[in-house]
Amino acid sequence: MLATARWLEATATDNALELLNVFMANELVGRAERNAAKAVVKRASGQARHARPFEGDRPPLAFR
């Protein structure tokens, strides 16, 4: 009976630590994804600010 209780306690502890690991990894990955998305938006807005507007019937990358 004591051996079963110790085994159950060890298994419960292992499961709790594994669950905590999954939660922490999920939070860190989510935070990294949000930061990456913000960086992409910031970079794209900076590029759009420096882009040349389309002029008439010329393609935007035409040489002058």
Rank of each mutant, 00 (worst) to 15 (best):
E33Q: 11
A36M: 13
T13N: 00
V40H: 10
K38N: 06
M24H: 10
A32V: 08
L17T: 03
E18R: 09
L20Q: 09
V29A: 03
N35C: 05
L20H: 07
D14G: 07
N26T: 14
T13L: 02
E27V: 14
V41R: 15
V40C: 05
L20N: 05
N21M: 06
A25I: 03
N35K: 08
D14E: 10
F23S: 08
D14H: 08
N15L: 05
A36S: 15
A37F: 09
N15M: 06
A37N: 11
A39Y: 03
R31L: 12
A32M: 06
L19E: 05
N26A: 09
F23L: 08
V41S: 14
N15W: 05
A25F: 09
K38M: 05
V40K: 10
A16P: 01
F23N: 11
V40L: 11
V22Q: 13
L17D: 04
A37R: 12
K42A: 14
K38V: 00
L19N: 03
A37P: 02
R31Q: 13
T13D: 01
A36E: 14
A39D: 09
N21I: 09
M24D: 12
L20R: 07
V29N: 04
A25C: 02
A16I: 06
M24A: 11
L17A: 03
E18I: 04
K38H: 04
R31D: 10
R31I: 10
M24W: 15
A37M: 08
V40R: 12
A39I: 01
D14R: 13
L20V: 03
N21C: 05
A25P: 00
L17H: 04
V40S: 07
T13K: 01
T13M: 00
K38F: 04
T13Q: 01
V29H: 01
L20Y: 08
A16G: 02
V22A: 11
N26D: 07
D14S: 10
R34H: 11
L19V: 04
V22I: 12
K38C: 01
R31F: 09
N35P: 00
V40W: 08
R31W: 08
R31K: 13
T13G: 00
L28R: 15
N15A: 08
T13E: 02
N21H: 13
E33S: 10
E33A: 13
R31V: 07
L28T: 15
L28S: 08
R34N: 15
L19M: 03
K38E: 07
K38S: 06
V29Q: 03
V22P: 00
L17F: 04
T13P: 00
V29R: 04
K42G: 07
K38P: 00
L28Q: 13
R31S: 12
A39S: 09
E18F: 04
G30E: 03
N35R: 06
A36V: 12
A36F: 13
A32P: 01
L28D: 08
